[in-house]
């Protein structure tokens, strides 16, 4: 540590002490006479049981409502055919996949498959048409799926961000009804991305329009009953 860095560090720590001292005395001055009791009387479980046909139907509805295209398949064996149809329809020539994506999901795809390991450059990602991933959990009430960067079949954040088309495969076992059920299943120690529909904005007259900086096209392959 040179002299300037040492000086900066000393300055940082003294500011820290000043702010904390202010906050401590303010907290004492403003604290209510009776301690706060946190009430959590809201529903921690959703109306529909995880993984059921009903919860998948609701997820289908809410995803579709926010302009994702949903493809229902009965079993994992049918994923490849659904993914292939989506990629062919979109005329995707190259796709990126996270390092741990089941290889079988791209069976039959004769375009270029770029596996993100070792990591692809941003330029590579920008010239890739689509990305195919799994998801950690999906929320039927809100039409949301969550990508966990630590999961090998979801991968680091950039791969689902730069390509303009995201194909996400969601397994029935990972579908819950409500936000609290999803939050309980997630580990925040690595990056998470909650995705609800393709990128959108409400900034023009507060009306939602799809398609800004994130992927403009979102297909979901929903596996289960």
């Amino acid at each position: 540590m040179n002299a300037r860095e040492a000086g900066d560090a000393a300055q940082r720590s003294s500011t820290r002490e000043i702010v904390l001292a202010r906050l401590r005395s303010a907290r004492e001055a403003g604290n209510p006479a009776t301690p706060v009791v946190v009430t959590r009387e809201f529903a921690t479980r959703g109306r529909l049981a995880p993984g059921t046909a009903e919860v998948l139907d609701r997820l289908d509805e809410t995803l579709t409502d926010y302009k994702a295209t949903v493809h229902r398949v009965g079993s994992e064996a049918e994923v490849a055919r659904a993914v292939l149809k989506v990629l062919v329809d979109a005329a995707a020539a190259a796709v990126v996949v996270p390092p741990g994506l089941p290889g079988a999901w791209l069976d039959g795809f004769d375009g270029k498959v770029r596996r993100d390991g070792p990591p692809l450059s941003v330029v590579d990602l920008d010239t890739t048409d689509a990305v195919v991933t799994a998801a950690a959990v999906a929320i039927a009430d809100t039409g949301t799926f969550v990508l966990a960067a630590a999961a090998p079949d979801q991968g680091r954040r950039a791969i689902t961000l730069v390509p303009d088309h995201h194909v996400c495969v969601i397994r029935a076992a990972d579908v819950v009804c409500s936000v609290p059920e999803a939050v309980a299943r997630l580990d925040p120690s690595s990056p998470l991305t909650f995705v609800s529909g393709p990128s959108a904005t409400s900034d023009i007259e507060l009306d939602r329009v799809e398609g800004v900086h994130g992927p403009r096209r979102l297909d979901v392959v929903l596996v289960g009953p």
Binding site: T62, Y66, G143, P188, F194, S196, G197, R208
Partner: peptide, 10 residues
């Protein structure tokens, strides 16, 4: 909205 398009946590 039921949920905004993107929420990031890190």
């Amino acid at each position: 909205e039921r949920m905004n398009p993107y929420t990031s946590t890190w």
